[in-house]
Design a protein around this nucleic acid. Structure first.
Lengths: 221, 221
DNA sequence: GACAATGCATAGGAATCCTATACGAATGAT
DNA sequence: ATCATTCGTATAGGATTCCTATGCATTGTC
């Protein structure tokens, strides 16, 4: 919980005000998610699951992974997955490597639904787009740093971000606009191209990851 | 809804990746809110309402205002306010100026509960605190800009922020650390002290607000 | 004074979301 | 190899959120 200072006249700590600001933006995103989801006959949780599954492709995800991604319990996830199943937007397959496990994947209809929802107008997108390119780039960088911390603290699962990826080579070029290198696509890229959820992600081991992070973060931990 | 690119190999637009990052942080905040709220026998929505009421003081807020703040419907707010009422954490008072309206305010027990919840450890707070002071300051500034846009778009209600306040005098000093002035406390302050939800807030009219924003934002709209 | 608009409550119902538990499958220890 | 444990998921049960639609009282407007 983000603490809120309740003493009149005193300024709350900077960290709390940032948390408060994030909450306000999250509120807008949440109510926007309702309209977007309703446009395709879903609710926000179902759309979030479906979007997640579409982004992961046809290999499918396990129920537990979906639950971790959403930050809810496993039975809750089962509920919502079943709702999507009834609507024909996802399908369950047996996991060949583990007979206990399921592989939940989006159907073609599910992909279509996500495309439709993604094309709706979004006040949040507009608000972010109103920032300058440099501001957007800085904001993304700060978010990546926060997300990485949340991940190491165990508050969220491992993210498919560049800074966790074995193909990531931070700060190998002098060009400030594209100092990094992605060994998967074998191309230079910059802070504005950093990925938060990359389809080609492959996790690096802990030592590689820490080393890359130090280089990326210019030596700071 | 924040669109998510689903074509393999292509990098989603920067705006979408920022939206995605914000969602990830919001997920962590949401699941954190569960533990914090449960520690005092509430759920996240109830704690959010209670925190909001405590921040607003004993004058009380109307149901409709609470609903707008939360971004949910008015009946939903009535539900949760009644739950808090049964627990003795808020009280309803008749609004003297309008016999239809209610004034919902936190009780002393409610204030105590919010204090308790605010003192719990928070991975999100820690993650934000791990940023440098300058990064935090930039992040806050970007959030303020986004929130203002969301507000002018009608996605969220008027926020009690400096940039909306009649006491705000942006960029009146040369000192980069404290270029602004608050006419309420009659003191200089800087970007790191910008308020997102100020108790002493008083809304400026539209013309004042736009003028102040241009000065604050160095001429950009 | 008639009539629309506003503020809130209620009705009704669907869905989220939790904990606790059950069960089969996989894993590890002895 | 057997048995206990762990793991992945489903189910049971229940509280609450959250919606739309509607009703009722009050307020404002013509």
């Amino acid at each position: 919980m983000i603490a809120v200072s309740i003493e009149p006249g005193s300024t709350p700590p900077l960290v709390d005000r940032i948390g408060d600001g994030l909450s306000r933006v999250a509120t807008a995103m949440r109510s926007e998610a309702w309209t977007a989801a309703e446009a395709i006959g879903l609710n926000p949780t179902q759309l979030q699951i479906l979007t997640f599954l579409v982004a992961r492709g046809r290999s499918g995800m396990r129920v537990k992974q979906i639950a971790a991604y959403l930050g809810v319990s496993q039975p809750t996830t089962t509920d919502s997955v079943n709702a999507l199943l009834r609507k024909g937007l996802v399908e369950k397959q047996a996991d060949p490597s583990d007979a206990r496990a399921l592989s939940v994947a989006a159907t073609p209809q599910g992909e279509t639904a996500v495309r439709q929802a993604g094309q709706l107008a979004s006040a949040t997108e507009d608000a972010i787009a109103a920032l300058s390119k440099l501001e957007q780039q800085d904001l993304l960088t700060h978010l990546v740093k926060i997300i990485r911390r949340l991940q190491t603290a165990g508050a969220i699962p491992e993210q498919r971000m560049c800074v966790n990826c074995r193909y990531f080579r931070p700060n190998v070029y002098d060009d400030a606009k594209a100092p990094h290198h992605c060994a998967f696509v074998d191309a230079a890229f910059g802070p504005a191209e950093l990925r938060v959820d990359c389809g080609e992600f492959e996790g690096a081991d802990a030592a590689e990851r820490d080393a890359a992070w130090r280089v990326f973060n210019r030596g700071a931990v």
